[in-house]
């Protein structure tokens, strides 16, 4: 019996060591310098709130800690969309003035591999910029750093919250340099293909209500022909 108990304690300790190794993995750091920083092309910078309650509309399966917004919005409870979140967001320009509308579809990715520090989300932005046109931004985001540095510490905290300074590039693909793929739709963006990067800046998170103070930014390169039109 004592051998069996010793084995069980050993297995528990081994599993805990593995989990700790995965959590504290020093090689899991995401890049904080945008791959677009070396691009000569002009950029379109859009900023937005990442707090669901401050967006125009946010919905998910209704089971998460984050409240859908507004209250009576339809929830995505059906099996095929239960891991999907939709946010309709007012996009601002770099001066904080309204610049357009963004509809973001995000679904958990089956490529998620926690052993590789990858908590992946497939997301697509459907964007309209008045006076400019429309576009689709397709990206793979990695939320590992967000979970490790914000969500889990908030749950561990006696006050059920996290406060600090967090900045990460969330985009991890599908572009070869870890950039999102942009396809222009109408207006000045018609026929355009380019790249984009989404970043997240967080200052406060509640384990009970979700994001409290969080902002996102979308940087889209504008190929020369579009820049000249501008």
């Amino acid at each position: 019996m004592k051998y069996f108990i010793s084995l069980l304690i050993g297995i528990s300790l081994g599993a805990s060591l593995f989990a700790a190794g995965m959590y504290f993995n020093p090689f899991a750091e995401q890049v904080t310098v945008s791959p677009l920083a070396v691009s000569d092309d002009e950029h379109l910078d859009l900023t937005f709130t990442s707090v669901p309650g401050e967006s125009i509309l946010y919905t998910d399966n209704g089971e998460s800690i984050i409240n859908t917004h507004p209250d009576r919005v339809a929830e995505l409870w059906e099996p095929a969309v239960v891991d999907t979140r939709v946010a309709v967001i007012l996009l601002n320009d770099s001066r904080g003035q309204p610049a357009g509308l963004g509809i973001k579809f995000s679904s958990d990715s089956e490529q998620t591999a926690l052993i590789n520090s990858q908590a992946l989300v497939n997301s697509a932005w459907h964007i309209y910029i008045p006076g400019e046109g429309t576009m689709l931004v397709d990206q793979i985001e990695n939320y590992w750093a967000y979970l490790r540095e914000i969500v889990i510490p908030a749950r561990w905290s006696s006050g059920d919250n996290w406060k600090g300074s967090f900045f990460r590039i969330m985009t991890q693909g599908p572009g070869a340099l870890g950039t999102a793929r942009v396809t222009g739709g109408t207006g000045n963006f018609s026929g355009m293909t380019s790249e984009a990067v989404e970043t997240l800046t967080a200052r406060a998170y509640s384990a009970i209500e979700g994001p409290v103070s969080m902002n996102g930014s979308l940087t889209i390169t504008l190929p020369q022909v579009i820049s000249e039109i501008e």
């Binding site: 050993g10 081994g14 060591l17």
Partner: peptide, 16 residues
């Protein structure tokens, strides 16, 4: 007993 414990740790790491 010690060897069983060490084996358990190894098994836990590999299993997880």
């Amino acid at each position: 007993l010690g060897k069983t414990f060490i084996f358990g740790i190894f098994l836990g790491i590999v299993g997880a």
